[in-house]
């Protein structure tokens, strides 16, 4: 199970933020405290991303319209 935090943020957002952090750490302009904070955040993000890659089951859902003409997404029956 991925963490609550990881579920809210999309993989892409997490990875992009991670890229920004890596870049600013590489440039080395931040104060030591900021650098440490960035590093902590970066490690957390990398965990989140790795966590997202862990899933083994692909979920396939089916899109349909109900009688009222609203969209419904249901688990595929053959799953």
């Amino acid at each position: 199970m991925s963490s609550k935090k990881g579920q809210k943020r999309s993989f892409e957002d997490a990875l992009r933020r991670l890229e920004v952090i890596v870049e600013s750490l590489e440039q080395g302009n931040a104060s030591l405290d900021d650098a440490v904070a960035l590093y902590e955040e970066g490690i957390q993000l990398s965990k989140e991303c790795a966590e997202k890659l862990k899933a083994t089951e692909l979920r396939i859902k089916r899109l349909s319209k109900n009688v009222a003409g609203q969209f419904e997404v249901r688990e595929s029956e053959e799953e």
């Binding site: 990875l15 991670l18 890229e19 952090i21 890596v22 750490l25 590489e26 080395g28 030591l32 650098a35 440490v36 960035l38 590093y39 970066g42 490690i43 990398s46 991303c49 790795a50 890659l53």
Partner: peptide
């Protein structure tokens, strides 16, 4: 591919670690 992505993430971790160590060393 997720294996590729994990590799990318791992490299990021190395880079962050390296940069921070350098920072500390210079301090």
């Amino acid at each position: 591919d997720r294996l590729e992505l994990l590799e990318v993430i791992k490299n990021y971790c190395y880079t962050m670690y390296g940069s921070l160590r350098e920072e500390i060393a210079s301090r």
